[in-house]
């Protein structure tokens, strides 16, 4: 109701050529965050491997948490101004509507229902969630088709179950499904040899593999069962905040593309090798004011969390326990699906 009203007002105001009047009347969430001087971001009620975990000292870490930090740094200049609110999966959408959180960064797939009916707005995907199949090395399978007739274990009632069924039906592969309620049970069954293969989200499979007594006994196959593009979610109508989110993701990718890292960002800012790096890091002004932020926001972000590749390697990639290959989450120039927007 309120969003419709706002939209109507905005439309009317634009028609009369004075969009600013509306902004003055209805304070956007971005301004609220700046005023509150803290960003409320999603955590987890437990953990989601690689994306949101709690270390021994009770500190949050993981891929999603790094993006929360990046956003807090972009808007408020410091990752300490971030408040992680623990939430279950089911809670995230009501919580963003009621204002308990400002953004959802919680491996949230971009689906039509969520985008249209729940009154949410998605950023461009910041992670391409792949579903894979892992099998025993001794079976010598190179693709899913080689496992015809085998026992496939999955978590009951999850997206994975549906995705596996779809894939097998489409490709006409016979298999025997075996469902488990909890991740622990699924793993134990796989280690014990009850399953020829398990299907699941990339990081879960990697964790299962590295935790085996002998990780080389298991192998993640290259075939992708399905993709889920994960976006950062804001409430419908928070355009200013969404702009910041989109450009934050883009800045992280652009930094990687141009070789700007946490280590060399100071040097790059002082002597930008190209004009676009200069614009990105605020050596040439303009990157901040257009978003309502300071001109060094992207510099601060990279200084704090590094570029996209560094975040990936540190939390789920080679530098972490999960050793999840970049795969589709690589830059377009390296065979992936990610690309920065144009910073002019």
């Amino acid at each position: 109701m309120k969003t419709k009203l706002t939209n109507l007002l905005t439309a009317g105001a634009i028609a009369f050529g004075s969009a600013t009047a509306v902004h003055a009347q209805d304070q956007g969430l971005l301004d609220t965050i700046i005023e509150r001087d803290s960003l409320l971001c999603t955590g987890h009620n437990g953990s989601y491997l690689g994306f949101a975990e709690v270390d021994g000292a009770g500190e949050w870490q993981g891929f999603d948490i790094e993006f929360c930090k990046a956003l807090a740094t972009a808007i408020l200049g410091s990752p300490d101004k971030l408040q992680i609110i623990p939430l279950s999966w089911a809670q995230r959408f009501p919580a963003i509507q009621s204002g308990d959180i400002d953004v959802i960064i919680k491996v949230t797939g971009w689906t039509m229902t969520r985008d249209t009916e729940l009154g949410l707005q998605y950023s461009r995907p910041y992670f391409i969630g792949p579903f894979y199949v892992m099998s025993k090395t001794e079976l010598g399978a190179t693709g899913i088709a080689d496992l015809e007739g085998g026992v496939f274990c999955v978590n009951a009632g999850t997206t994975v179950e549906r995705v596996l069924t779809d894939y097998m039906e489409t490709n006409g592969i016979d298999y025997e499904p075996l469902a488990f309620e909890k991740g622990e049970e699924l793993r134990a069954a796989f280690y014990a040899g009850r399953c020829d293969a398990i299907a699941g989200f990339g990081p879960f499979l990697s964790a299962t593999r590295v935790n085996a007594d002998n990780p080389d006994d298991f192998e993640i196959l290259g075939d992708v069962l399905a993709l889920e593009p994960e976006g950062i979610v804001v409430k419908q109508g928070e355009d200013d905040l969404l702009d910041v989110v989109n450009w934050m993701v883009s800045a992280l990718l652009m930094a990687e593309e141009n070789g700007v890292t946490q280590a060399n960002v100071d040097e790059m800012k002082a002597n930008p090798p190209t004009a676009s790096v200069g614009r990105l890091l605020g050596s040439t002004p303009g990157v901040g004011t257009r978003l309502g932020l300071s001109d060094d926001w992207a510099y601060n972000v990279i200084k704090t969390v590094g570029n996209y590749g560094e975040i990936y390697e540190r939390t789920v990639g080679e530098g972490s326990r999960y050793k999840l290959p970049r795969g589709l989450n690589n830059l377009w120039s390296n065979g992936g699906l990610l690309y920065p927007l144009v910073l002019d």
Partner: peptide
Amino acid sequence: NAAIGSGE
């Protein structure tokens, strides 16, 4: 659950 929810 969080305690076991890490790769380690």
